[in-house]
Amino acid sequence: MNLEPIDPETAVELYIAEREADTAASTIRSHRARLSHFVRWCDERDIENLNELTGRTLHEYRLWRRNDGDLAKTSLKCQMDTLRVFIRFLGTVDGVHPNLHEKVRSPDLHPGEDVREVMLDSEQAKAVLEYLERYEYASLPHVTLALLWHTMMRLGAARTLDLKDYSPEDQCLAVEHRPETGTPIKKGSQGERLVALSGELCMLLDDWLRDQRPDVTDEHGREPLLATSHGRVCKTTIRRYCYQYTRPCAISRECPHDRDPETCEATNSGQFSKCPSNVSPHAIRRGSITHHLNSDVPETAVGDRANVSQKVLEMHYDQRTEKEKMEQRREYLGNI
């Protein structure tokens, strides 16, 4: 068949342009980053026309990527899966043979290999929120971390909230997909939902809105619920709060790593993530989901509230041991 010459950089840009119309910006960034390694590999091997790709050269890339910087098996799978989608696209625009994508091999993962177990446990979450309630009540870090823990929201969903999305009368929050004004959510409109709030969390939100929230709008004229003096809180700020306040020393607890707070680099602003004990926003979400499951909240209710399917819930978020699950089932059997 007749193929049209195309260089790696142009091919990636065509692919990205094709995906941008119906793909979240975060996914686009991930795909671009993964494919940047393929472009680098092509450059090192003087591959200027992707028409030349074969099953053998793609296998050589896989071996190169696997050995490049001790890449984890799960990360290699993500990169090869993205490459397969990319090669499939090229086959539709006469860049490579239409069936070449079938020769892109991706590692097989055994059950559990693609699951991260890092999470914020309920005891640590309680300690963090108690510290914030006592010393930084109704501050932006306090409201943000309380919201993430109690609602199991993703970082992006919490950031998209506006004042009008909070109903103190109904004690709930409306999560909406608004990509046209800069706040898309994962799963798009399928991720929209109402999230019930406790009376305690509503009281915290009310105090934040009355006493501390800056009177600001974002660049689209919307009034963000989580706001700084500059407008809507950014994702990096939310991540910084998570890393900052889940450090044991930040909440007056002893360092489990025998580090001296006076010299530890993780005590410096901008380096909080270097603490071995702190966690990311996603680990807070995972911990909260596990906490709700351990508290006998039905899996369907947890899944709907957290906007996650039953399969993904069991595979990626439920950190209960098999014995814990058995004992919870025993409680139900006792009522039969």
Rank of each mutant, 00 (worst) to 15 (best):
E60Y: 05
F38N: 03
N67P: 00
S36L: 04
D46Q: 14
H59Q: 12
S36G: 03
G55V: 02
G55Q: 03
L58N: 01
W64L: 03
D70Q: 14
N67G: 12
N67L: 11
L58Y: 01
R56K: 13
E44V: 12
V39A: 03
E44R: 10
C42Q: 04
L71D: 02
D70T: 10
F38G: 02
E52W: 15
H59G: 13
L58S: 02
D46C: 10
H37K: 11
N67C: 05
L63V: 11
E48V: 13
S36Q: 10
D68G: 10
L53T: 04
H59L: 10
D70W: 05
L35K: 00
V39I: 12
H59S: 11
E44Q: 14
H37M: 04
D43L: 07
S36M: 07
H37I: 01
V39H: 01
C42A: 10
E60V: 07
R34I: 01
D43G: 15
I47H: 10
L50D: 02
Y61W: 06
R66I: 02
L58E: 01
R65T: 10
R34T: 01
L50E: 03
E52R: 12
R34N: 09
L50T: 04
N51P: 05
G69R: 13
L63S: 11
S36F: 01
W41M: 05
